[in-house]
Design a protein around this nucleic acid. Sequence first.
DNA 1: ATTGATGCAAATAATTTGCACCTTT
DNA 2: AAAGGTGCAAATTATTTGCATCAAT
Lengths: 137, 137
Amino acid sequence: MEAPGLEHRFRERGLRATPQRVAVWREFAERPGSTIREAARRLRGSGIGQATVYRAVRALEGVGLIVRFAAPQGEVRFAAVLEHAHLLVCEGCGAVQPLEECGLGAYESEVARRSRYRVRGHTLIVYGVCPECQEVS
Amino acid sequence: MEAPGLEHRFRERGLRATPQRVAVWREFAERPGSTIREAARRLRGSGIGQATVYRAVRALEGVGLIVRFAAPQGEVRFAAVLEHAHLLVCEGCGAVQPLEECGLGAYESEVARRSRYRVRGHTLIVYGVCPECQEVS
DNA sequence: ATTGATGCAAATAATTTGCACCTTT
DNA sequence: AAAGGTGCAAATTATTTGCATCAAT
């Protein structure tokens, strides 16, 4: 997964686009569903310290460029996202893939109207069993 | 929040409805958005050890009776749910409230058809700013 | 009896911090 | 220079485990 203007997305949300942060984002874009530990171990090879990975994840999660979710066995995993945080997660093998349009716009408006909240976005994680894991079971 | 037949919901998912587990679920139902630490501290008063709280949360999360999500500042928080894991979270004060029907049924079918996954459910977290926090800002 | 749960305390793993140094305004 | 980031190693927190015991089937 590549993203033209990735750096720009960082800046427009008030984050400096440091090489380390970009590398962290890319790591979770290429391997969605990694744990921080796994990502940090790989990034170690690029000279990026684990504290930096934690700090980057926190910063990116804060502006919605990375989402956190519970994997099958309950571990906390992460995935990079661009606009939408819509993921399909396999409960068997833990595979993660992005989902397209969820058509939740109207629903969000409805929620905003009824709750009087200023709605800013949402995270949708769909859980299921992928074709491969279905065969096995 | 009370739930008739709560115990039954545990058992039909293969979990023993021990008093500790029920207490843990209730704690997160009464105070959605608590951290495990907070819940454990309160439950301590009922003689429930922290290891039990962790084990209960893991078990309940596994069968979808508790969901985990990222709060404003990035901490991991939990909330008890019954059928649906639909939550509205305030990014300001961290207040959490359940949401009703999301009408995502058709979308799930669509995802299942296109991905060939056997879809089992989903978690939807809507983020926004509650009326009180809007005034402050 | 047998299996599953629990509490406690100890062990591990995860996450954050202090600090000196480096980069970008 | 000033502000924001980073790496490293050292705290600090969070989570899991071993084990003896209790409860439910």
